[in-house]
């Protein structure tokens, strides 16, 4: 009697945990269940009904509405954590030297991370073009919800039909946001936005951009942010993204 009760208990467990296609043939519970189903048609029918019910529970389990702005808030939180970690790493390096040198280094790092360290115009242009050329479209993951605060789209540009963005972890040593301005017919275009200042840089994109073999670029600064627009193609393609009809304001 005890053996029979134990057998039934083992069967109940196997009915619950064995997936029809999820276990190797040598799995003991699956083999036991298969033997019981072959010997007892009622067991097979019960297993079939349980599998059907499991499928419906699984479908309901995956039905969870996701807040629409979740990705944006996650990226903002992730971006906010980065500077603290960089400071920590630099502090560890500086700790092996003299206290005075370490303190000086920390001050320099602090200023740099706050965007107070000046950048050069050519440096940000070169870095933007390099990032643009090294980021093929198939490896980019643009988001369509609200971008993290602090890196707004520039009013100097035409945003196109849909503004898409992604966080950038390390552009000229800073984090920020890249906006995708690519249209369905026009070539690729990306706007990089990071905190900082560039000495002598104007407050609007140039009408005549810096050009390379395959793309055009221009940099400007607004409200403590550096903007760099990189466009695939010639100056005409570049100018199609500008909101201002005339050239540089600076």
């Amino acid at each position: 009697m005890d053996d029979q009760a134990s057998r039934e208990r083992r069967l109940e467990q196997a009915l619950e945990v064995c997936r029809p296609d999820g276990l190797p043939a040598d799995d003991a519970a699956s083999a036991f269940l298969a033997a019981e189903m072959a010997a007892r048609p009622g067991v097979a029918e019960r297993y079939r009904r349980l599998q059907g019910l499991d499928a419906r529970i699984a479908a309901a389990m995956r039905e969870v509405p996701v807040p629409g702005d979740l990705a944006g808030r996650l990226m903002a939180r992730l971006a906010a954590e980065r500077p603290a970690r960089e400071v920590s790493r630099r502090w560890l390096l500086a700790g092996s030297g003299l206290l005075a040198a370490a303190a000086g280094l920390l001050v320099a790092v602090w200023l740099g991370l706050r965007g107070g360290q000046p950048l050069s115009q050519q440096y940000v242009l070169d870095e933007a073009i390099r990032s643009f050329e090294n980021s093929p479209p198939e490896l980019q993951h643009w988001l369509s919800d609200s971008p993290p605060g602090g890196f707004p789209f520039s009013g100097m540009l035409l945003p196109g039909r849909q503004v898409r963005w992604q966080a950038i972890a390390d552009f000229v040593g800073r984090h920020g946001v890249a906006y995708d301005l690519s249209g369905t017919e026009a070539g690729r275009a990306t706007l990089f936005v990071v905190a900082g200042t560039v000495e002598g840089l104007g407050p609007a994109p140039a009408l005549q951009p810096f050009t390379t073999a395959g793309c055009c670029a221009s940099a400007w600064q607004e409200n403590g942010l550096v903007y760099v627009l990189v466009v695939e193609g010639d100056p005409t393609a570049y100018q199609s993204h500008l909101r201002l009809p005339t050239g540089p304001i600076a």
Binding site: V64, V66, L70, A71, M75, L143, Q166
Partner: peptide
């Protein structure tokens, strides 16, 4: 692999 790609690809499933 970068964190932006991970968020874009998996944030929905992780939240669910």
């Amino acid at each position: 692999v970068n964190i932006t790609n991970l968020v874009a690809d998996h944030h929905r499933a992780v939240y669910q």
